[in-house]
């Protein structure tokens, strides 16, 4: 099958009405370059507060690149131009305190990456680094964030065991717990379930649906069923361009762009 050429100028991007919707974070003409490679072209997206937004697309379509730019994790490997507006500030500006910003925009990665510390210390570590010393308060946060990540019942008696003794799915939920312990506004997830078995995956999905009551969630996924199951909005990425963005239902049932249609019906990717 030959690779079809699509017209990248043909786009169907949803824009929210400013007065009706609360926008958690938005990007304007975001460009990402790896050396000479223009990996993301004119990224223009707005994300609604307390919703799950899926970023879908084939490998190399720029969706992970886009996600990682949102909390400046690409700083050392890529050149990022354009604006990322969060609470009226441009996150992409050099004046931003990146470390402070990342406490507000947390990230969970593709492969579980707990620290080689105890389960408890995985959660308290970053809080202690911030200067939180109160033992009672820390214990409280540990319990709350583990409950939020639906892990509490499985580990409450083993909090001092090493995090690496957990299963992959539990480790990933611990990573989610660790991130939400920082009380972020926005949760970025980079294919959080792609390395997990179906049962762990569905647990993560349940967790996310529960979490969206208090967090704005942006998730990159390869799994289109997952995107349609859990997300409110979906953005379709193709070869560095964002071609379609809208309500998940609309994107999956009545895609307006030929490339989106071809992708979700499995013609490529």
């Amino acid at each position: 099958m030959s690779i079809e050429k699509y017209d990248f100028n043909e786009k169907n991007i949803l824009h929210f009405k400013q007065d009706k919707h609360q926008i958690a974070i938005a990007t304007h003409v975001l460009q990402v370059y790896y050396g000479n490679k223009h990996a993301l072209v004119d990224g223009d997206l707005e994300f609604e507060r307390y919703r799950i937004t899926s970023l879908i697309g084939a490998s190399g379509s720029g969706k992970s690149t886009y996600l990682r730019s949102l909390n400046r994790m690409n700083d050392n490997v890529a050149k990022v131009e354009g604006k990322i507006i969060y609470r009226g500030l441009d996150v992409n500006s050099s004046k931003i305190n990146v470390y402070e910003m990342r406490k507000h925009i947390g990230m969970v990665f593709q492969r579980p990456n707990p620290f080689s510390k105890s389960i408890r210390a995985n959660i308290t570590f970053a809080l202690k680094e911030q200067g939180l010393k109160d033992k009672k308060k820390l214990d409280e946060i540990v319990e709350l964030s583990l409950k939020d990540a639906a892990l509490w019942d499985e580990v409450k008696d083993d909090l001092d065991k090493s995090a690496w003794s957990l299963s992959g799915g539990q480790q990933q939920r611990l990573c989610i717990a660790r991130t939400i312990a920082m009380k972020p506004d926005i949760l970025l997830l980079d294919e959080p379930a792609s390395a997990l078995d179906p049962i762990s995956t569905s647990k993560i999905e349940e967790t996310l649906v529960e979490l969206k009551k208090r967090y704005t969630i942006i998730i990159v996924t390869h799994n289109m069923q997952q995107a349609s199951r859990i997300s409110d909005y979906t953005a379709f990425f193709h070869m560095g361009h964002i071609l379609e963005y809208g309500k998940t239902k609309n994107v999956f049932t009545t895609p307006q762009i030929r490339a989106t249609n071809d992708y979700i019906s499995g013609n490529f990717g």
């Binding site: 994790m73 470390y99 990342r102 492969r111 990456n113 680094e129």
Partner: peptide, 15 residues
């Protein structure tokens, strides 16, 4: 030590 660990620390706002 895998790079994932570095990213984990950075993503939590550590320098």
């Amino acid at each position: 030590v895998p790079d994932l660990q570095r990213e984990a620390g950075m993503a939590l706002g550590l320098s």
